[in-house]
Nucleic acid binder design. Structure first.
Length: 757
DNA sequence: TCCGATCTATTTTTT
DNA sequence: ATAGATCGGA
């Protein structure tokens, strides 16, 4: 046995060394899935397999990078860097840059992100004079995206009566036309959306046998991570690629499937047995990550789901801490209690900030957490949310980059042409768009040569257009001669974008200028990295075009930070695949988690439950659940109810009972084997309550040094209560107080302003 | 065409 | 709450 394989358990070992033929690995949470994948790659290389023959597909760039780093650690640099490891989207984008001409795409095609996509769909809806309320852009986009990920093109869509009937009964019969126009417009812009990267790769392999053959020869060993999250398109592409050698290894966990909402299909796991009847199955069931308490609680929760593949996750780890429970009166208080708990654990357990993660269902929940952490000076880092790349000023500058790289990129052109203002307004643009449509050419064609298409323009406008076109073309020339950073800086300055924001002379304007500078620094770093990497990776030049390819598929979670000792804040989706000693799962309230839009069908509810399972199994040492009894949502104060998921946590594993104090829980009727009733958003939850009571600004705490058990105290939010105990001293002094209103709470006296009554 | 005031949708999760 | 969209007036 090779040395490096010694640390593996039997199942892991088998999953690693069975390199030939189809293999499926069902890997429970924390069972060493990534380990198996990395060792498998290392093992292949060790056996002398050419790294260029190995393909490893992941869902996030982060997972890909991590895998690469770990392989390099195992067997050293050099060979490892030539393995194709990346997300489905990035790998297929790379293939399409090489092969896109078969489908009529240039290699410099633009990738539209969801913002660009949405905008384009919105434009089309307006152009078609449809009511944007009926045809809500987000809805239409979701519909088109769903179609594309099932490999249903515009024609198939229009010819599929089941689909069109559904659209008709939804009073949206024209989605098929929007879809058709949308695809034409994308094509005319030499652009692909995220789904096209998969769709077109599939078409490429389906229609061009020689291309398929080439990649089948290339990728002799294929590995797919998070197989439970693949959609139909991904499934078929992988199947085609693997058809020759059948050296395919998929790793997944049905209990962690949380992307059905975007077309992921758990059936792909089941299909695997049919597609490769002689496949080998390995089950990784031993959890190395979490304590017994966490594993047991998680097992019980997932047990409430009907649809699942039987498996038993177990662990030899210690029993561990019970699961914490935080009950807060408001979202802000929830933030404070969580921040306090982190502070306390840091002090008592000597932990780093980076040992903590706060996980939530929606990005909007981060704010209360941020504020609370900031108040007590705990550094944190937010993953996801409003991405750096979706800020206005960044989009503005990127639009120029895109336009310079691909003149036909219509979205980029529309954004750039009058930002900053160049006197090319709405009227002119509308006229140009009509001409472009009539002649079926890209918008750039018309802007660049309006005379050619007989566009009616006054001479002033014509000059402005000509100047703009000349400028863009001059950038394109520069781009060929200079490296990325120089061109980027030239563009930022010559276009007047930086000047525009600077002249706003407002704090926002200034921060926009700073963001632009940050982006330029990013470009600089990128091209320097390009120069360094040149000898190792011949394909990498560090050009602006390459930078843009990177950016299009990048998410915020992929960015690195210099200072890494920070508390992590992210959605549960973003946390998949990660682990932390201490995990706080916040906002466990009905209509938030599970989400109000996911409780009408069993399938949706079960996905929410898997999400909860994923969240809980991120924890190594201790998990803490929290919920608030009220929360601001959509700027509205709402009373909330604890999540049904809290009831599914084994009471015996909780630090404090769920139902304590005076609060009487309304009995919720839930039978495990009936389909949940139609959602009845309880009035109670949505009723705005009078929020006008002004808080007593003068409320200041008494000196709490004299605080002792038995004393009556008053709290600014909780009102009257009785002190049960006081522990700790100095800044960490805590008191347990029983309040009439909210039951027993533990408060850090430094923050809780208590008045002795 | 530009600017400001008013209105409005947004919040599920991501490549 | 808040950013973006929209509309009317300059």
């Amino acid at each position: 046995m090779e040395d490096y394989l010694k640390g593996l358990n039997k199942e892991q070992y088998n999953a690693v060394v069975n390199t030939d033929g189809p293999v499926m690995v069902i890997a429970g949470a924390g069972s060493g899935k990534t380990r198996v994948l990395t060792f498998r790659v290392a093992h292949l290389l060790q056996k002398g397999i050419d790294p260029f023959n190995i393909l490893a597909l992941t869902f996030t760039n982060k997972a890909a990078r991590e895998m690469k780093e770990r392989v390099i650690k195992l067997i050293g640099d050099g060979e490892a860097r030539n393995v194709w490891m990346g997300t489905f989207h990035s790998v297929f984008a790379k293939i399409l840059r090489f092969e896109g001409q078969h489908l009529g795409y240039p290699s410099n095609f633009t990738i539209y992100d969801s913002d660009d996509t949405k905008k384009l769909i919105k434009n089309i809806i307006t152009d078609m004079k449809l009511d944007p309320k009926t045809y809500a852009p987000n809805f239409v986009r979701a519909r088109i995206s769903m179609a594309k990920s099932h490999l249903i093109g515009p024609e198939e869509y229009a010819n599929n009566t089941e689909i069109t009937e559904a659209d008709k009964s939804g009073a949206k019969p024209l989605i098929k036309d929007i879809y058709k126009t949308y695809n034409l417009r994308l094509k005319r812009s030499d652009a692909m959306d995220f789904d096209d990267l998969l769709f077109n790769t599939y078409i490429l392999f389906r229609d061009f046998a020689e291309v398929l053959y080439k990649y089948q020869q290339k990728f002799k060993y294929i590995m797919v991570d998070e197989y439970q999250d693949t959609n139909h398109a991904q499934y078929l592409i992988v199947k085609k690629l693997a058809a020759n050698t059948e050296n395919i290894c998929v790793v997944g966990d049905d209990a962690q499937s949380i992307y059905a909402f975007r077309g992921a299909n758990i059936q792909n796991i089941l299909n695997f047995r049919k597609d490769y009847p002689d496949y080998k199955l390995f089950k990784l069931e031993q959890n190395y990550r979490s304590t017994k308490v966490i594993v047991e609680a998680a097992n019980k929760i997932i047990g409430f789901n009907k649809d699942q593949i039987k498996k038993t996750v177990w662990t030899e780890n210690d029993e561990g801490n019970k699961i914490g429970l935080i009950r807060a009166t408001s979202d802000n208080e929830e933030g404070k209690l969580v921040a306090d708990a982190i502070f306390t654990a840091k002090m008592t357990e000597q932990r780093h900030n980076s040992d903590f993660a706060i996980l939530y269902r929606t990005n909007a929940q981060s704010r209360a957490m941020e504020e609370a952490l900031r108040k007590i000076n705990i550094p944190y880092r937010i993953y996801g949310g409003q991405s750096f790349y979706s800020r206005k000023e960044i989009k503005d500058l990127l639009a120029y980059f895109r336009l310079v790289i691909n003149h036909n990129d219509e979205d980029a052109l529309q954004r750039a042409i009058n930002t900053p203002a160049r006197g090319i307004g709405k009227t002119t643009m509308e006229r140009l768009i009509v001409v472009a449509d009539e002649n079926n050419v890209s918008l750039w064609e018309v802007v660049n040569a309006p005379g050619k298409y007989g566009t009616q323009l006054n001479s002033g406008t014509a000059t402005k257009l000509a100047n703009f076109a000349t400028m863009i073309k001059s950038f394109a020339v520069e781009m060929k001669k200079k490296e990325a950073y120089e061109v980027a800086q030239l563009i930022a300055n010559t276009t007047g974008l930086v000047r525009m924001y600077r002249e706003e002379d407002t704090p926002e304007g200034l921060s926009r200028v700073e963001n632009i500078e940050e982006l330029l620094n990013g470009v600089k770093e990128f091209s320097e990295r390009g120069a360094e990497a040149n000898e190792g990776d011949l394909e990498f030049q560090g050009t602006l075009a390459e930078f843009m390819q990177d950016v299009a598929l990048l998410t915020d979670a992929d960015q690195d930070d210099d200072d890494n000792d920070k508390v992590s804040l992210m959605t549960i989706h973003a946390a998949k695949g990660l682990e932390f000693p201490y995990v706080f799962i916040v906002g466990l309230e009905e209509n938030l988690f599970p989400s109000i839009q996911s409780i009408s069908t069993r399938a949706e509810l079960e996905e929410e439950r898997r999400l909860f399972y994923v969240a809980l199994t991120r924890a190594e040492t201790k998990a803490t659940l929290s919920f608030a009894e009220s929360r601001y949502r959509w700027g509205q104060f709402t009373i909330t109810e604890p999540s049904r998921f809290l009831d599914e946590v084994d009471e015996a594993l909780l630090e404090t009972p769920l139902r304590s104090g005076f609060k009487q829980q309304t009995e919720r009727i839930r039978t495990e084997n009936t389909i949940p009733k139609t959602p009845e958003p309880s009035r109670r939850n949505l009723k705005p309550i009078d929020n006008s009571q002004v808080q007593d600004k003068a409320f200041t705490g008494d000196d709490t040094g004299a605080l002792a058990p038995g004393m009556d105290v008053e709290h600014i939010k909780f009102g009257r209560g009785k002190v049960i105990s006081v522990e700790g001293n100095g800044p960490n002094q805590k008191a347990t107080v029983h309040f009439n209103s909210v039951g027993t709470k533990s408060l850090l006296l430094r923050f809780a302003k208590l008045k002795i009554v």
